[in-house]
């Protein structure tokens, strides 16, 4: 139950973020919902790397000698996800501000020129 409850919280965060990202018209609200989804995924990765063992660990001698890189891989992935999310949010906000300057709106439904 200790592992499952963290995974369930992660799934709930991801689902709430999915709802927000698809249903909001304000671009900054969409970005905030994306952050919620990232956090759900991060929580899942860290919980899995904390509570489960790779099957390799109990079998091969190499895996036992290098146990750290099998146990902490989830945390490494989370570091990379956080970095990419930071880059994404900086670029996203820059794009939103550029759109706001050129056409005085931040609603994603108003910036649909490529559809025409």
């Amino acid at each position: 139950m200790t592992l499952e409850r963290f995974l369930i919280i992660g799934a709930i965060l991801f689902a709430i973020g999915l709802y927000g990202a698809l249903s909001k018209r304000h671009a900054i609200a969409v970005l905030m919902s994306l952050e919620l989804m990232f956090n759900g995924v991060n929580l899942t990765a860290v919980a899995l790397s904390r509570y489960t063992i790779p099957a390799a660990l109990s079998q091969s001698q190499y895996a036992i000698d290098n146990a750290a890189r099998f146990i902490l891989t989830g945390q490494i992935f989370t570091i990379f996800i956080i970095t990419v999310a930071a880059a994404e949010i900086a670029l996203g906000l820059a794009i939103i501000i550029a759109i706001y300057r050129s056409r005085q709106t931040v609603l994603v439904t108003e910036a649909s020129d490529l559809r025409k």
């Binding site: 995974l7 369930i8 709930i12 991801f14 689902a15 304000h26």
Partner: peptide, 27 residues
């Protein structure tokens, strides 16, 4: 404020279905 699309009900449905599926699989 932060208005929603007109299709927020189906999106909410999809999210709830996803959440239920994920919780079912996890448990």
């Amino acid at each position: 404020g932060s208005p929603s699309h007109s299709f927020r009900i189906p999106v909410a449905l999809i999210s709830v279905i996803f959440m239920g599926l994920a919780i079912y699989v996890v448990s």
